[in-house]
Each structure stands twice: as C-alpha cells, then as structure tokens.
Simulated assay, not measured.
Amino acid sequence: MQPLSAPWPDPSAYLARVRPDAPLLFLSPATLQATARRFLDGFPGLVTFAVKANDRAEVLANLDTAGLSTFDVASPGEMRAVRAMNPNAVLHYNNPVRSLEEVAVGIEMGVASWSVDDEGELDKLSQVPRGAEIAVRFALPVKGAAYDFGEKFGASPARAVDLLRRVAAEGWRPALCFHPGTQCEDAGAWESYIAEAARIAARAGVRIARLNVGGGFAAHRHGTAPDLEAVFARIKAAVTRAFGAEAPALVCEPGRAMVAEAFTLAARIKGMRQGGDTVFLNDGIYGGLIDLRDMGLTGRIQVLASDGSARRGLGRARRIFGPTCDSLDRLPDGLELPEDTVTGDYVLFAGLGAYSVAMSTCFNGYGLRDVVTVLRLTGHCPHGS
C-alpha cells in the first residue's frame, strides 16, 4: 500500500512504472472527501457512514478529515476499527440481530444509537442505558432498489407500532429507521417509507426523536451519475409533508454512494482463448469483483496496455473468468473490451470502492489486498468520473 503522503499522479502512471501482477485498488482521497462534503452539505440531517461498505483505515481517516463524526457499525470489529481511527467517534449500531456478547461490547463502546425489529431482540437490549436512542426498524414491499433489504430485516408496520410504544415506555429515546435497499434509483421508495413512518408514530402515539432514512443512495454505474441532491430534496419534502410541525431530525447512513467513486479497481488479463472471446483476469467474484456478480456489469471500464496507454479499439463482448480453479468464478456475460486488447493488459473498473476490498476472499491464494493512493482518477473511464 502506498502511503497517503506520497501519492502517485494517476493509475496509468503507477501501472506503467510498477506493472503489478496482482489486482489492486486506486484511491483518490480528494474524491472521497469531496463526496463526503457533498452529503454533509446536501443531506438535511446527520450523515453517518456505513462502515461495511469499506472499512479500510484510509477510508475512515479521510471521512473523519472531511467532517464525518458518526459511523454506522454492524459488529464489534467495525466498532474497534472506527475507535482506532477516532476514539471520540459516535457509533450507531444498526445491525438489528446481536448476540448478548455483542450487545455487551456495544454498551462498553458507548454506542449512541441502536436499531431493533423484534421483541426478542429488544429484550437483549435491557442493559442499554436509558436515554440512549433505540430506533425501530420496519420494512415495506417497496421496489426501486437492486435488491430488497426488507427480506432479512425490518418489522411489519403493525409490529413496529408495538415496539415503538415499548421503547418509549421503557425510557429510551424513540426513533424509527428503514433501508430502501441497495443501489436505490427511485426516490419514491424513500417517500413511501417516510409516509409509513409518520403513520407508525401516530398509531403508537409516540413522537419520535429521529428518523433514519437508511442508505441505498445509488452510485454511478452507467451513463449519467445519480442526482443525489434531487433525492435529498425529495426526502426533505416528504418528511415535511408526512410529519408537518412534528418533523423528526433526520439521519442517513450511505455506504456504496459514499465510497464507490473514490476507487478504481485494476485487474490484469492473465490469458485469452477462443480468439479473445474468453478472458481470464487475476481478480474475480471471490475477490474485488464480487459486487458485479450481484449488481450486474458496470459500463465504466477502460483497458490500458502495460505501458499505461489506452486501448481504443471497438468494443467487443467477452466471457470473463476470474483466476481461481472454480468455474463459478465468472462475471455476467457481455463485458465489452476493446478489439485490440491483449494478454497482459489492465482492465480498470471505475467506481468500485464499495463491497470490493471489504468482501474479497483469499480463495486459492488470490484476493484483493493492495490500495494505492493517487492524486486523481482521471483518464480511467470513457464517460468521465
């Protein structure tokens, strides 16, 4: 890993000089901090970061520098990573299913906000100091995201009413939370959830202190980048419409949209077969490209020769395999690479800062481990970044 104090100019400069044979991520701290400021300036409430998306120390430190003081953690390991970066950081523990041992660690770490979606899980929080915030998480059958988080977490609205009453009655600060699902490209999903949150609070007879509208903000994967400010504006308007004068304070917990754009993943072509129609990379679904298996192919790639120059031939759809011995290690078909692509070239995937290094395994001795700091991520995407 290159130290932040000595960044390379850009990915092509590093690849031409070092010619690495293992996959790596390029990090632009300037891009990461600019994205954080975009959320801080635009979102009408508290901005936290979902650490699960990328828990690298460089990421946490840059977000702290940009002004984020609160982090959404899902495990004791993530709590410790945040506190190692900033002992005074505020922790929100929004994984609603915890062991008693994990609850004890959260209490010891001074978690400020907890979420819950089940009576039994609320029982586990009995030792959480009164005055701490407990947010009841609810779920709706709302479309608009790449996949639905409500299949795993979230009480029905009727159960949320009962849980919210109990949270308030037992002396915790009552709140509500939801998650519209990852890569949500329809602001209407937030509007539906916000309207239901107001109905839950009214039925429970509880004035909530805060409403956590989750993450789900879309990252740039194809064509035009998502208009985050338009989503922020619709969230704000929906809260005013639903709650009126009793509008709660807002919280969001972006993960993907916060870190994706600050990283470019570089994988090298190990071999090509069948006239170039089948390509083997040194990274795949057991490494940093795992998110492409679930989210589909990104349109933001470029191929560089080993000297750092760009391949500019016409695109041709290929079959792409990763480096392991498992035949399942394969990207969705149809990734277009330039006609003049050859073995030894580098395929650069823009916007892969989320769920890449965080989910990479070491299966078969492969894996994404290295992060190289650059001043800019320019020239790596035909459509810009």
Rank of each mutant, 00 (worst) to 15 (best):
G244V: 07
P23D: 05
F217M: 02
V279F: 14
L91F: 07
V47L: 02
H383V: 09
S309L: 09
R207N: 07
P323N: 06
V47E: 04
A13F: 15
G215K: 13
R268W: 10
M1Y: 10
R273V: 13
R312M: 13
E191K: 10
N54S: 06
M1H: 15
L304W: 09
K143Q: 12
V374C: 11
A81M: 14
D277N: 08
I301K: 04
R98W: 09
P96M: 05
T31R: 13
V251N: 01
A238T: 01
A201H: 04
V231L: 08
Y193W: 13
V136W: 09
G215T: 13
Y355P: 02
D333S: 07
R159Q: 15
S5I: 15
F26R: 04
A187R: 14
R316K: 10
P3G: 05
S113F: 00
R80F: 10
W190A: 10
A112G: 04
T70V: 11
D227K: 01
G106A: 08
A66K: 07
L328R: 10
Q274I: 11
V259G: 08
A233Q: 05
I134P: 11
D118T: 12
E196L: 15
F178N: 00
A260L: 01
L24A: 10
Y366H: 15
L24R: 06
R311H: 10
A74E: 11
W190F: 02
V59S: 01
S327G: 03
E108V: 13
A242C: 08
G223K: 03
V259M: 15
S113W: 00
L289A: 14
W114N: 06
W8R: 11
E58P: 07
G288L: 05
V90C: 12
V47Q: 01
D329F: 07
D72L: 15
T224E: 14
V128M: 02
S360P: 00
A36E: 01
G313I: 07
D118W: 06
G308A: 02
A317Q: 11
G299L: 08
I269T: 07
A305R: 11
A16N: 04
V347R: 06
G223F: 03
A6Y: 04
D55P: 01
A218D: 09
A209V: 11
A53E: 09
R137P: 06
P11V: 14
A219R: 14
N282V: 04
